[in-house]
Design a protein around this nucleic acid. Sequence first.
DNA 1: ACCACGATGTTATAGTGTTTCAAGAAGCAT
DNA 2: ATGCTTCTTGAAACACTATAACATCGTGGT
Lengths: 167, 167
Amino acid sequence: MGSMMGAHSPFPSPYHDHARCVDRALSEAAEICFQSGERMTANRKAVYLQVLSSHKAQNAADIAVGLARNGKRSVSPMMVYRALDFLVEQGLIHKISSLNAYIGCAEPMTARAHCFLICTVCGVVTDYHDEAVVQQLTKHIRAIGFKPKSPVVEVPGICPFCQDSEC
Amino acid sequence: MGSMMGAHSPFPSPYHDHARCVDRALSEAAEICFQSGERMTANRKAVYLQVLSSHKAQNAADIAVGLARNGKRSVSPMMVYRALDFLVEQGLIHKISSLNAYIGCAEPMTARAHCFLICTVCGVVTDYHDEAVVQQLTKHIRAIGFKPKSPVVEVPGICPFCQDSEC
DNA sequence: ACCACGATGTTATAGTGTTTCAAGAAGCAT
DNA sequence: ATGCTTCTTGAAACACTATAACATCGTGGT
């Protein structure tokens, strides 16, 4: 593992304390729902937890299967899609359109600019938010007369951990 | 219309000579197929022309309808998808994954880095290829240990012409 | 002319997402 | 607490997007 892989790497290490990821996300989510006046119902929370359960992007079917495994009955596709729509609306998760799949937002409270690094080996999707990079991009775009809304940047590639594993 | 909208704007003006766009694309396509040893068959060409017929992104259904209007019989979805796959493989068209739709590649011979500017008002999708911008992006990504393949950048927003129209 | 290979036509099937409507639960005012 | 309103849920059907499988046809090479 290279020295670049210290505590501040945006990539989730296979050995990181994932329970903390989830706890943090949940408390931020509660705050966001409180502010927006929306309700984090049982269904929505179940879907949210399922999305958060892994750093890999999950599609609607994956989520339905995951919920069913955790004892939920009657996980209709509709229920999953509705919850996903809600969570996207609240900024709690992101849709990776090149995969038709979803991942949890790393920093729902603060992050504005998103760039998704998709490891084609292990499947992990990193929500890399570097304002500088995206602002650079939008600056160029604005300069040629286009008025951009939030850009969608999805980059397939190989993450540091999979490079080290020499897969 | 601001002065920025001169001859070198990447945005296709509503008044531009579209026949020239198409002619140029066709001759580049012929060259590319010659080099790759693949055949530009009647079906493929028909689909290609349909994609090129507009600067708006078209999905498979749009294309099928367009072909049917132009006298083609038996435009099954299969035939459309197969042609689209071929054209994407040859780099003649691009898939806009956030729209599930396709547009013609502006410079199939030369362009490597693509950034798609999607006007949410008029529906035109511009294939903006600015190596500098994308290289800037990949440089940052490489710096944090990720080994990127070609990034997918899709930016919704409002194009200069629609801004002028004050829609 | 014959063969081999790729392209096409056709049908079936899987995957992805939306619409619709009825029923249920939560919040709010009286 | 009651009733009203609104949002959420459940369920079925539908529409869209994409792929698989296989027989047939055409083209190009020998």
